[in-house]
Amino acid sequence: MELRVLRYFLAVTQERTISRAANILHLSQPTLSRQLSDLETELQVTLFERGSREITLTPAGRYLRERALILTQLADKTVQNLQTQSPIISGSLDIGAGESQGMRRIMHLISNLQADYPGIQLHLHSGDDANVKDQLANGQLDFGVIIGEQPLTHYHALKLPERDRWGVILPKTHPLAQQTHITPLDLRHQPLLISQQAAQSHQFADWWRNVASQIQLRGTYNLIYNAQLTVGDGPTLVLGLDQLVNVGPDSPVTFRPLSPEMTAPITVIWSRQQSLSPVARLFLQRLRASLPD
Protein backbone atom coordinates (compact mmCIF):
# COMPACT_ATOMS: atom_id res chain seq x y z
CA MET A 1 0.00 0.00 0.00
CA GLU A 2 1.90 3.02 -1.28
CA LEU A 3 1.53 6.58 0.02
CA ARG A 4 1.13 7.77 -3.56
CA VAL A 5 -1.93 5.57 -4.03
CA LEU A 6 -3.36 6.61 -0.67
CA ARG A 7 -3.13 10.22 -1.82
CA TYR A 8 -5.00 9.24 -5.01
CA PHE A 9 -7.65 7.57 -2.85
CA LEU A 10 -8.01 10.66 -0.64
CA ALA A 11 -8.37 12.90 -3.69
CA VAL A 12 -11.25 10.76 -4.96
CA THR A 13 -12.96 10.80 -1.54
CA GLN A 14 -12.74 14.58 -1.52
CA GLU A 15 -13.87 15.21 -5.10
CA ARG A 16 -16.52 12.45 -5.05
CA THR A 17 -15.89 11.58 -8.71
CA ILE A 18 -12.96 9.90 -10.41
CA SER A 19 -13.02 12.37 -13.29
CA ARG A 20 -12.62 15.46 -11.08
CA ALA A 21 -9.94 13.76 -9.00
CA ALA A 22 -8.07 12.73 -12.15
CA ASN A 23 -8.03 16.35 -13.35
CA ILE A 24 -6.62 17.56 -10.04
CA LEU A 25 -4.01 14.80 -9.94
CA HIS A 26 -3.10 15.33 -13.63
CA LEU A 27 -3.84 11.69 -14.40
CA SER A 28 -5.99 10.09 -17.02
CA GLN A 29 -9.27 8.72 -15.72
CA PRO A 30 -8.46 5.10 -16.77
CA THR A 31 -5.11 5.30 -14.97
CA LEU A 32 -6.71 6.53 -11.75
CA SER A 33 -9.49 3.93 -11.96
CA ARG A 34 -6.92 1.19 -12.39
CA GLN A 35 -4.92 2.40 -9.38
CA LEU A 36 -8.03 2.33 -7.20
CA SER A 37 -9.04 -1.08 -8.48
CA ASP A 38 -5.55 -2.41 -7.72
CA LEU A 39 -5.82 -0.95 -4.20
CA GLU A 40 -9.12 -2.75 -3.60
CA THR A 41 -7.58 -5.97 -4.90
CA GLU A 42 -4.55 -5.56 -2.63
CA LEU A 43 -6.69 -4.90 0.44
CA GLN A 44 -9.34 -7.47 -0.55
CA VAL A 45 -12.19 -5.04 0.21
CA THR A 46 -14.61 -2.84 -1.70
CA LEU A 47 -13.85 0.82 -0.97
CA PHE A 48 -16.44 2.57 -3.14
CA GLU A 49 -20.08 2.27 -4.10
CA ARG A 50 -20.09 3.71 -7.61
CA GLY A 51 -23.26 5.65 -8.38
CA SER A 52 -24.47 7.28 -11.58
CA ARG A 53 -23.17 10.72 -10.54
CA GLU A 54 -20.98 10.42 -7.48
CA ILE A 55 -19.24 7.66 -5.59
CA THR A 56 -19.78 6.98 -1.91
CA LEU A 57 -17.55 5.16 0.53
CA THR A 58 -18.28 1.75 1.98
CA PRO A 59 -17.60 1.19 5.71
CA ALA A 60 -14.18 -0.15 4.70
CA GLY A 61 -13.63 2.95 2.60
CA ARG A 62 -14.52 5.27 5.48
CA TYR A 63 -12.09 3.43 7.74
CA LEU A 64 -9.31 3.66 5.16
CA ARG A 65 -9.96 7.39 4.70
CA GLU A 66 -9.46 7.99 8.44
CA ARG A 67 -6.24 5.98 8.48
CA ALA A 68 -4.96 7.40 5.19
CA LEU A 69 -5.32 10.96 6.52
CA ILE A 70 -3.22 10.04 9.54
CA LEU A 71 -0.60 8.21 7.48
CA THR A 72 -0.17 10.94 4.87
CA GLN A 73 -0.03 13.71 7.49
CA LEU A 74 2.56 11.75 9.46
CA ALA A 75 4.62 11.14 6.32
CA ASP A 76 4.52 14.85 5.39
CA LYS A 77 5.55 15.85 8.90
CA THR A 78 8.39 13.32 8.95
CA VAL A 79 9.78 14.61 5.65
CA GLN A 80 9.46 18.21 6.83
CA ASN A 81 11.28 17.52 10.08
CA LEU A 82 14.04 15.53 8.37
CA GLN A 83 14.62 18.34 5.91
CA THR A 84 15.01 20.88 8.71
CA GLN A 85 17.81 19.21 10.71
CA SER A 86 19.88 22.38 10.64
CA PRO A 87 20.93 25.22 12.97
CA ILE A 88 17.97 27.23 11.66
CA ILE A 89 15.17 25.30 13.35
CA SER A 90 11.86 25.01 11.53
CA GLY A 91 9.11 22.49 11.18
CA SER A 92 5.80 21.70 12.82
CA LEU A 93 4.86 21.25 16.46
CA ASP A 94 1.65 19.33 17.15
CA ILE A 95 0.09 19.65 20.60
CA GLY A 96 -3.16 18.06 21.72
CA ALA A 97 -4.97 19.44 24.74
CA GLY A 98 -8.23 19.74 26.58
CA GLU A 99 -9.54 23.09 27.75
CA SER A 100 -7.33 24.30 30.58
CA GLN A 101 -5.99 27.58 31.92
CA GLY A 102 -2.61 25.81 32.07
CA MET A 103 -2.43 26.28 28.29
CA ARG A 104 -1.61 29.95 28.88
CA ARG A 105 1.93 29.02 29.91
CA ILE A 106 2.35 26.80 26.87
CA MET A 107 0.94 29.33 24.40
CA HIS A 108 3.12 32.11 25.83
CA LEU A 109 6.14 29.85 25.45
CA ILE A 110 5.24 28.95 21.86
CA SER A 111 4.67 32.60 20.99
CA ASN A 112 8.21 33.38 22.11
CA LEU A 113 9.51 30.31 20.31
CA GLN A 114 7.95 31.37 17.00
CA ALA A 115 9.29 34.89 17.46
CA ASP A 116 12.80 33.44 17.69
CA TYR A 117 12.23 30.82 14.97
CA PRO A 118 9.62 32.04 12.43
CA GLY A 119 9.85 28.76 10.53
CA ILE A 120 8.08 26.86 13.32
CA GLN A 121 4.43 26.08 12.68
CA LEU A 122 2.05 25.25 15.52
CA HIS A 123 -0.87 22.83 15.13
CA LEU A 124 -3.29 22.65 18.06
CA HIS A 125 -5.62 19.65 18.38
CA SER A 126 -8.47 20.01 20.87
CA GLY A 127 -9.80 16.92 22.58
CA ASP A 128 -10.25 15.10 25.84
CA ASP A 129 -7.56 12.92 27.40
CA ALA A 130 -8.61 9.81 25.50
CA ASN A 131 -8.34 11.64 22.15
CA VAL A 132 -4.96 13.07 23.10
CA LYS A 133 -3.56 9.68 24.09
CA ASP A 134 -4.86 8.05 20.90
CA GLN A 135 -3.23 10.72 18.76
CA LEU A 136 0.04 10.40 20.67
CA ALA A 137 -0.01 6.66 20.02
CA ASN A 138 -0.65 7.28 16.31
CA GLY A 139 2.27 9.68 16.07
CA GLN A 140 -0.01 12.60 15.19
CA LEU A 141 1.08 14.62 18.23
CA ASP A 142 4.41 15.63 19.68
CA PHE A 143 2.91 16.47 23.08
CA GLY A 144 -0.36 16.17 24.93
CA VAL A 145 -1.72 18.27 27.79
CA ILE A 146 -3.97 16.31 30.13
CA ILE A 147 -5.93 17.31 33.21
CA GLY A 148 -6.33 15.33 36.43
CA GLU A 149 -4.55 12.48 38.19
CA GLN A 150 -3.97 9.58 35.82
CA PRO A 151 -1.57 6.63 35.46
CA LEU A 152 1.17 7.77 33.06
CA THR A 153 3.54 4.81 33.01
CA HIS A 154 3.52 4.70 29.19
CA TYR A 155 4.54 8.35 28.79
CA HIS A 156 7.21 10.81 29.69
CA ALA A 157 5.50 13.44 31.82
CA LEU A 158 6.13 16.95 33.10
CA LYS A 159 3.70 18.38 35.65
CA LEU A 160 2.98 22.11 35.41
CA PRO A 161 2.80 24.25 38.57
CA GLU A 162 -0.68 25.50 37.66
CA ARG A 163 -3.76 23.57 38.79
CA ASP A 164 -7.27 23.80 37.39
CA ARG A 165 -10.04 24.63 39.86
CA TRP A 166 -13.50 23.08 39.62
CA GLY A 167 -16.63 25.08 40.18
CA VAL A 168 -20.17 25.78 38.98
CA ILE A 169 -21.10 28.00 36.04
CA LEU A 170 -24.51 29.50 36.74
CA PRO A 171 -26.64 32.54 35.85
CA LYS A 172 -25.83 35.71 37.77
CA THR A 173 -29.53 35.83 38.69
CA HIS A 174 -29.48 32.35 40.28
CA PRO A 175 -29.86 32.30 44.10
CA LEU A 176 -26.61 30.30 44.42
CA ALA A 177 -24.74 33.14 42.70
CA GLN A 178 -25.06 35.09 45.98
CA GLN A 179 -22.72 32.58 47.64
CA THR A 180 -18.92 32.63 47.48
CA HIS A 181 -18.67 28.81 47.23
CA ILE A 182 -20.91 25.91 46.24
CA THR A 183 -21.24 22.81 48.43
CA PRO A 184 -22.67 19.39 47.60
CA LEU A 185 -25.79 20.26 49.63
CA ASP A 186 -26.34 23.33 47.43
CA LEU A 187 -26.49 21.18 44.29
CA ARG A 188 -29.20 18.79 45.48
CA HIS A 189 -32.00 18.58 42.90
CA GLN A 190 -30.25 21.10 40.62
CA PRO A 191 -30.05 19.99 36.95
CA LEU A 192 -26.35 19.65 36.11
CA LEU A 193 -24.10 19.14 33.10
CA ILE A 194 -20.69 17.60 33.82
CA SER A 195 -17.65 17.00 31.63
CA GLN A 196 -17.67 13.65 29.88
CA GLN A 197 -14.19 12.83 31.14
CA ALA A 198 -15.09 13.59 34.77
CA ALA A 199 -18.27 11.51 34.49
CA GLN A 200 -16.45 8.50 33.03
CA SER A 201 -13.78 8.59 35.75
CA HIS A 202 -16.34 9.17 38.54
CA GLN A 203 -14.27 12.19 39.53
CA PHE A 204 -16.95 13.64 41.82
CA ALA A 205 -17.86 10.43 43.62
CA ASP A 206 -16.01 11.41 46.80
CA TRP A 207 -17.12 15.04 46.60
CA TRP A 208 -20.84 14.21 46.36
CA ARG A 209 -20.59 11.84 49.30
CA ASN A 210 -23.93 11.43 51.07
CA VAL A 211 -25.96 13.49 48.59
CA ALA A 212 -24.96 11.56 45.45
CA SER A 213 -28.46 10.08 45.11
CA GLN A 214 -29.94 13.61 45.03
CA ILE A 215 -27.70 14.95 42.26
CA GLN A 216 -29.53 15.35 38.93
CA LEU A 217 -27.05 14.82 36.12
CA ARG A 218 -28.77 15.90 32.92
CA GLY A 219 -25.91 15.10 30.55
CA THR A 220 -22.25 15.54 29.68
CA TYR A 221 -20.11 17.81 27.51
CA ASN A 222 -16.60 17.86 26.09
CA LEU A 223 -16.37 21.56 25.17
CA ILE A 224 -17.15 24.07 27.90
CA TYR A 225 -18.09 26.86 25.47
CA ASN A 226 -21.05 24.93 24.11
CA ALA A 227 -22.03 23.70 27.58
CA GLN A 228 -22.15 27.16 29.12
CA LEU A 229 -24.65 28.29 26.47
CA THR A 230 -27.24 26.09 28.18
CA VAL A 231 -26.83 28.09 31.40
CA GLY A 232 -28.38 31.23 29.97
CA ASP A 233 -31.24 29.41 28.24
CA GLY A 234 -32.61 27.35 31.11
CA PRO A 235 -32.25 26.08 34.66
CA THR A 236 -29.23 23.85 33.94
CA LEU A 237 -25.97 24.50 35.82
CA VAL A 238 -22.57 23.40 34.54
CA LEU A 239 -19.75 21.86 36.53
CA GLY A 240 -16.59 23.12 34.89
CA LEU A 241 -13.10 24.54 35.30
CA ASP A 242 -12.28 28.11 36.25
CA GLN A 243 -11.07 30.77 33.79
CA LEU A 244 -12.50 29.06 30.71
CA VAL A 245 -15.78 30.98 30.46
CA ASN A 246 -16.37 34.71 30.13
CA VAL A 247 -17.84 35.93 33.43
CA GLY A 248 -17.23 39.64 32.82
CA PRO A 249 -19.74 42.47 33.34
CA ASP A 250 -21.47 41.82 30.00
CA SER A 251 -21.80 38.06 30.55
CA PRO A 252 -25.04 36.59 31.95
CA VAL A 253 -23.13 33.83 33.78
CA THR A 254 -20.68 33.66 36.67
CA PHE A 255 -18.40 31.07 38.29
CA ARG A 256 -18.41 29.86 41.89
CA PRO A 257 -15.73 27.45 43.16
CA LEU A 258 -16.60 24.23 44.96
CA SER A 259 -16.28 23.72 48.68
CA PRO A 260 -14.56 21.49 49.70
CA GLU A 261 -12.19 22.71 46.99
CA MET A 262 -11.49 20.45 44.03
CA THR A 263 -8.45 21.06 41.84
CA ALA A 264 -6.77 19.06 39.11
CA PRO A 265 -3.11 18.88 38.06
CA ILE A 266 -2.06 19.78 34.52
CA THR A 267 0.52 17.52 32.91
CA VAL A 268 2.40 17.62 29.61
CA ILE A 269 3.03 14.12 28.26
CA TRP A 270 4.90 12.68 25.29
CA SER A 271 5.51 9.19 23.94
CA ARG A 272 8.27 6.92 25.23
CA GLN A 273 8.30 5.13 21.88
CA GLN A 274 8.97 8.00 19.48
CA SER A 275 11.95 10.30 19.03
CA LEU A 276 11.34 14.02 19.28
CA SER A 277 12.02 16.32 16.33
CA PRO A 278 14.41 19.28 16.76
CA VAL A 279 11.38 21.57 17.15
CA ALA A 280 9.85 19.35 19.82
CA ARG A 281 13.18 19.07 21.68
CA LEU A 282 13.54 22.85 21.68
CA PHE A 283 9.98 23.28 22.97
CA LEU A 284 10.61 20.78 25.76
CA GLN A 285 13.87 22.48 26.70
CA ARG A 286 12.16 25.86 27.03
CA LEU A 287 9.18 24.38 28.87
CA ARG A 288 11.48 22.85 31.47
CA ALA A 289 13.37 26.13 31.81
CA SER A 290 10.08 27.98 32.46
CA LEU A 291 9.19 25.81 35.46
CA PRO A 292 10.23 26.63 39.02
CA ASP A 293 12.87 24.40 40.56
Score class of each variant (00 low, 15 high):
residue 83 Q to I: 04
residue 60 A to H: 14
residue 177 A to V: 03
residue 113 L to C: 00
residue 70 I to Q: 14
residue 226 N to V: 08
residue 58 T to V: 10
residue 283 F to C: 02
residue 15 E to A: 14
residue 157 A to N: 09
residue 249 P to G: 07
residue 106 I to V: 14
residue 123 H to K: 13
residue 210 N to M: 08
residue 34 R to Y: 06
residue 293 D to L: 05
residue 6 L to I: 06
residue 187 L to T: 03
residue 125 H to I: 00
residue 116 D to V: 02
residue 53 R to L: 11
residue 47 L to M: 15
residue 35 Q to D: 00
residue 223 L to A: 15
residue 287 L to S: 01
residue 269 I to G: 01
residue 222 N to P: 01
residue 7 R to P: 05
residue 168 V to H: 03
residue 70 I to K: 15
residue 77 K to T: 14
residue 22 A to N: 06
residue 175 P to F: 07
residue 238 V to P: 04
residue 15 E to S: 12
residue 127 G to L: 07
residue 14 Q to S: 13
residue 270 W to A: 00
residue 238 V to A: 05
residue 235 P to M: 01
residue 158 L to S: 00
residue 178 Q to E: 13
residue 103 M to Y: 14
residue 122 L to F: 00
residue 128 D to K: 10
residue 40 E to G: 04
residue 262 M to K: 14
residue 47 L to Q: 09
residue 266 I to M: 11
residue 3 L to V: 12
residue 252 P to Y: 06
residue 82 L to V: 04
residue 9 F to N: 01
residue 94 D to H: 11
residue 208 W to T: 08
residue 220 T to I: 07
residue 12 V to I: 11
residue 86 S to T: 15
residue 70 I to T: 14
residue 94 D to Q: 08
residue 264 A to V: 08
residue 182 I to E: 03
residue 152 L to V: 05
residue 292 P to D: 05
residue 71 L to T: 10
residue 239 L to E: 08
residue 97 A to Q: 09
residue 192 L to V: 11
residue 2 E to F: 06
residue 144 G to A: 09
residue 284 L to V: 03
residue 126 S to P: 08
residue 69 L to R: 15
residue 171 P to R: 15
residue 29 Q to G: 10
residue 181 H to Y: 10
residue 185 L to K: 11
residue 79 V to H: 12
residue 99 E to F: 10
residue 271 S to A: 08
residue 231 V to E: 03
residue 47 L to N: 13
residue 203 Q to Y: 12
residue 271 S to N: 09
residue 79 V to G: 03
residue 112 N to R: 08
residue 228 Q to M: 10
residue 206 D to W: 05
residue 253 V to N: 04
residue 278 P to N: 04
residue 221 Y to I: 13
residue 121 Q to F: 01
residue 192 L to P: 05
residue 216 Q to R: 13
residue 106 I to R: 00
residue 86 S to P: 04
residue 166 W to V: 12
residue 46 T to D: 09
residue 288 R to D: 01
residue 194 I to W: 14
residue 25 L to T: 10
residue 223 L to N: 14
residue 70 I to R: 13
residue 21 A to P: 07
residue 56 T to E: 12
residue 147 I to Y: 10
residue 243 Q to D: 13
residue 88 I to P: 00
residue 198 A to K: 12
residue 162 E to T: 14
residue 10 L to A: 10
residue 82 L to K: 09
residue 29 Q to W: 06
residue 162 E to C: 09
residue 119 G to P: 03
residue 101 Q to W: 05
residue 150 Q to R: 15
residue 261 E to A: 15
residue 230 T to C: 07
residue 187 L to E: 03
residue 205 A to W: 05
residue 177 A to G: 05
residue 155 Y to V: 02
residue 203 Q to S: 10
residue 177 A to C: 04
residue 263 T to Y: 07
residue 24 I to N: 13
residue 290 S to Y: 00
residue 46 T to I: 09
residue 102 G to Q: 13
residue 4 R to P: 03
residue 252 P to Q: 05
residue 168 V to D: 02
residue 128 D to R: 10
residue 252 P to A: 05
residue 41 T to W: 02
residue 96 G to A: 08
residue 23 N to R: 11
